[in-house]
Amino acid sequence: VFVDDHLLEKVLELNAKGEKRLIKTWSRRSTIVPEMVGHTIAVYNGKQHVPVYITENMVGHKLGEFAP
């Protein structure tokens, strides 16, 4: 499973602090992992960042699938 390192670091850091804030990313190719559930990730679609709230059903899919 591929997840960009910088994105995973941000998610794990927020989980350690117990925070839930918006994470901006250009990494549409990253796979959604269970650690991301409950976070809102702003995924770049080529024009703007689209906020995507991550749920359990999204695990295993790519971030780009949810930012048309």
Rank of each mutant, 00 (worst) to 15 (best):
V1D: 15
V1W: 05
F2P: 06
F2W: 12
F2M: 08
F2S: 08
F2I: 08
V3E: 06
V3G: 04
V3L: 04
V3A: 02
V3K: 01
D4T: 01
D4V: 01
D4S: 04
D4G: 01
D4R: 00
D5W: 15
D5A: 15
H6K: 15
H6C: 15
L7V: 03
L7Q: 01
L8C: 06
E9D: 09
K10M: 15
K10W: 08
K10D: 10
K10P: 01
L12Q: 10
L12Y: 06
L12N: 12
L12D: 04
E13W: 06
E13G: 07
L14A: 10
L14W: 02
N15V: 05
N15F: 02
N15H: 03
N15M: 03
N15S: 04
N15P: 01
A16Y: 07
A16W: 06
A16L: 11
A16G: 09
K17N: 10
K17R: 11
K17V: 11
G18E: 06
G18I: 03
E19H: 07
K20S: 05
K20Q: 07
K20W: 04
K20N: 04
R21P: 06
R21Q: 13
R21K: 10
R21W: 04
R21A: 14
R21T: 11
R21M: 09
R21H: 12
L22T: 13
L22P: 11
L22C: 14
I23Q: 02
K24N: 08
T25E: 01
W26E: 13
W26L: 09
S27F: 06
S27D: 04
S27W: 07
S27R: 04
S27C: 15
S27G: 04
R28D: 05
R28G: 05
R28Q: 06
R28C: 14
R29P: 08
R29G: 11
R29W: 10
S30E: 02
S30P: 01
S30K: 01
S30C: 06
T31Q: 09
T31L: 05
T31M: 08
I32W: 00
I32A: 04
I32K: 00
I32V: 12
V33Q: 04
V33A: 05
V33T: 06
P34D: 11
P34L: 09
P34T: 12
P34K: 14
P34N: 14
E35G: 07
E35V: 14
M36Q: 01
M36V: 01
M36N: 00
M36C: 03
M36G: 00
G38S: 10
G38M: 07
G38I: 00
H39P: 00
H39N: 02
H39Y: 05
H39W: 05
H39D: 01
H39S: 02
T40N: 09
I41A: 01
I41Q: 00
I41V: 06
A42V: 05
A42L: 07
A42G: 14
A42P: 01
A42R: 03
V43S: 01
Y44E: 03
Y44P: 07
Y44K: 05
Y44L: 06
G46D: 06
G46P: 02
G46F: 07
G46E: 07
K47M: 12
K47H: 12
K47Q: 10
K47R: 10
Q48Y: 12
Q48I: 09
H49L: 08
V50N: 13
P51M: 07
V52I: 14
V52C: 13
V52G: 00
V52Q: 04
Y53F: 13
Y53P: 12
Y53I: 13
Y53M: 10
Y53K: 14
Y53E: 12
I54L: 10
I54K: 00
I54T: 02
T55G: 12
T55I: 12
T55D: 14
T55N: 14
E56Y: 12
N57T: 11
N57F: 06
N57K: 10
N57A: 13
N57L: 13
N57D: 13
N57P: 11
M58V: 05
M58K: 09
M58W: 03
V59S: 06
V59F: 15
V59Y: 08
G60A: 11
G60C: 15
G60I: 02
G60R: 05
H61N: 09
H61L: 14
H61W: 07
H61A: 11
K62I: 10
K62S: 11
K62R: 13
K62T: 12
K62A: 08
L63A: 02
L63S: 01
L63K: 00
L63D: 00
L63F: 08
G64A: 11
G64D: 05
G64T: 04
G64F: 10
G64Q: 10
G64L: 07
G64K: 08
E65G: 09
E65T: 12
E65Q: 12
F66Q: 05
F66H: 06
F66M: 07
A67P: 04
A67I: 05
A67V: 07
P68W: 05
P68L: 10
P68F: 10
